[in-house]
């Protein structure tokens, strides 16, 4: 597991699953499984912005970017590539 995914997993398990990651897979939908509500989404967004020094555009707050560990990882990789061009 990548460092990014591991950090994300730890944040979600600690903050939204109360430490119980039973059945929480990399492709588990936060929305479908009721893991995150709108309050939680604000917490997740703040965490992403602080932890990864990013600014998320409001139009980027869509399920394709944020609705599972896999989606988050892919989205962050894309964002970081844009922010830090080689």
């Amino acid at each position: 597991m990548s460092d990014v995914k591991s950090t994300l997993r730890q944040f979600i398990v600690e903050n939204f699953l109360f430490g119980d990651d039973d059945g929480f897979e990399d492709d588990t939908s936060f929305l479908e499984q009721g893991i995150i509500d709108s309050t939680g989404m604000l917490e997740l967004i703040t965490f992403l912005e602080e932890e990864f020094s990013l600014q998320l555009d409001d139009e980027e707050l869509i399920p394709e970017n944020l609705d599972s560990l896999n989606n988050l990882e892919a989205f962050l990789a894309k964002k970081q590539a844009v922010q830090q061009p080689q």
């Binding site: 995150i36 989404m41 139009e59 707050l61 869509i62």
Partner: peptide, 9 residues
Amino acid sequence: NNRFIYPAD
């Protein structure tokens, strides 16, 4: 729309 946690959607 049950995806209000993603308001852009």
